[in-house]
Design a protein around this nucleic acid. Structure first.
Lengths: 344, 344
DNA sequence: CTGTTAGCGCCTTCAC
DNA sequence: GTGAAGGCGCTAACAG
């Protein structure tokens, strides 16, 4: 007495949802025909297709993508792993990604690593379990284990944000070291000598660390020393930038303060204004990322545009290209842009 | 000559990935035993379980959640639909959500509606196809069709952000109308009379519209009229707030300018500073959301904290509670908080 | 053009 | 404790 079989129009539903079989039964055709109609196959007579579509709509049939993917081949889910979302930067990358994926019928499954490499490895494992068609990751520092899982998984992978890497498969980003160096050149060209650096916890954020290294090296090559960096072991924020700037200004006024990113720099600008300093007359300030707010300030922030929406867009595009059999470039540098602003 | 069957340790892999069968073959046990071990069933002898686990690890076996969900019952994917990500507000909600879900082994599948109700309906349809265990949505305005799909789907649903609704299943948010009214009371209490409003395209953002309505009604009840709103049909941004404020100031200086949100208000503050106005001495400014930047400004912004991380956290919690058979409240108002700031 | 058959990889139910 | 059979909902491959 198993209750399998053609319960057709009887109304029984697996897990409360209409199945292919029910639509087929009600329309008086076979399951495969319904399947073809739902996937827009041209192999079905238009009249029949119309009828099937009508029945499917009546029954509120929604194809089960789980079963479809298991039986067919390609999933349309894409695993996306980011280190954070508190910063608008990754939200914008994600926006670019989602737009690019959604437009082609793909859906992101999201994981946030919190800049924790171990957690990132767990995320990779669990998201791979969904058999995604591809994976996009802004790394928190791949563990050897993570790297092995990704290599073995044999699916298209785009490592985003940083182009100074040897990607497992593809990369889309900018050179963070190069961005630091570019900022150094900018400052050297303007003749600054007494240069300070304020940052957050760089031990977990390797891209910010690379920018810092690039900045220091760039200044060093030009014979300028960077004052010992002031770092605080917590996430970056406007308030932190403001607070640390006040501390520096309490004992000394450098010609320039470079901040790890725009959030911190905006806080720094507020602190300078609060201290009665005119920017850039009394002190110069630089950031990184080119947040809209920084550019809308009375004196637009000196910063570097990281073109993150473009990073998301391109990552989606290359991933899809690969999935469709094309051969996109394995390294894509979207190119950063130095924004002189009015604060240096 | 079909090549089905026990290819066991031979190394063939379905779709390039190790399967249960291979682990079973290599460990010399049946598939179901491996299945039990992987799911932590206590029905397997410890020694055997250990051996199976070792083999699974060696082979880099990652269970196929698609097959597992299809055969078993509950998916651990949660559909999440948001209207935007360009604004940090939704990124923070998403962060709260992801954290709450991930901690319990659930994963978000993301869709962005761009405040487009039709697109939202498409997203609902396609995400439901993945048979998610639940759905969290910050609505762009459910179409009747969307509403029908959600009702029929018979899965736990949390509508987030707004508590002034009659939820399909559960809601977590604040009263946007109430927030507007609260701001009105704040302004009335301070004796302001000449009050302007600057906003973005409210036709698509019904929550911003509700705040505006609440503000206007609140002022009306106190016998104060709101000057005709100035709206521009584009997304909100710092630059837009700045620009529109300049336009207003060019012809008239109201006592207060209320902005649709903090982004706009921050732009407004910049414009006021640029025009040489001291805040709040010459002009007052209010926003909405309590962005960190607004609070780090020399004069902290008058605004309303929408507790969005808490919204995400609670939404995840209630959804999971429902999935685990508990009975969470169907309405949760997390409560907004008026932040007086120093700009009014 | 339409249908039949045989699974996708796993889990439930029942035997052993 | 462990295993064998059958099926979740769908689709590829082949037959008609």
């Amino acid at each position: 007495m198993t209750q399998r079989g053609n319960d057709s129009a009887s109304g029984r539903r697996a897990r409360g949802r209409t199945t292919l079989r029910q639509v087929a039964g009600r329309a008086g055709v076979s399951e495969i025909t319904v399947s073809r109609v739902m996937r827009g196959s041209p192999l079905v007579a238009p009249a029949l297709a119309g009828r099937v579509r009508r029945v499917a709509a009546e029954l509120g049939y929604v194809p089960n993508r789980l079963a479809g993917t298991l039986a067919g081949h390609a999933s349309t889910q894409i695993a996306v792993i980011l280190p954070a979302l508190s910063n608008i930067v990754f939200a914008e990358v994600l926006k670019g990604l989602e737009t690019g994926l959604e437009a082609r019928g793909y859906h992101p499954i999201l994981g946030i690593s919190n800049y924790d490499a171990e957690h990132e490895a767990d995320l990779i494992r669990s998201l791979l379990g969904w058999q995604p068609a591809g994976l996009v990751i802004a790394t928190a520092g791949l563990t050897p284990q993570s790297r092995a899982m990704l290599t073995d998984a044999a699916l298209p992978i785009v490592e985003i944000m940083d182009s100074d890497i040897d990607p497992i498969d593809m990369s889309v980003g900018i050179s963070h070291r190069g961005a630091g160096a570019a900022m150094a050149r900018h400052l050297v060209a303007r003749g600054y000598r007494d240069i300070a650096f304020i940052g957050h916890d760089l031990s977990r954020d390797h891209r910010a660390r690379a920018r810092f290294a690039g900045l220091r090296a760039g200044l060093g090559r030009a014979g300028r020393a960077l004052a010992p960096a002031r770092l605080r072991l917590c996430p970056s924020s406007v308030a932190l930038g403001c607070d640390m700037t006040r501390q520096i200004l309490a004992r000394h006024r450098p010609q320039v303060i470079c901040f790890a990113n725009d959030d911190m720099a905006i806080g720094g600008v507020f602190a300078c204004i609060g201290a009665g300093l005119a920017i850039p007359r009394d002190i110069a300030v630089t950031g990184f990322n080119r947040l809209d707010i920084g550019q809308a300030m009375p004196a637009p922030l000196t910063t570097i545009d990281t073109r993150r929406h473009e990073i998301g867009r391109l990552a989606a595009r290359h991933l899809i290209a690969r999935l469709e059999g094309d051969d996109p470039p394995s390294h894509s540098d979207v190119g950063f842009v130095v924004i002189p602003g009015a604060t240096s």
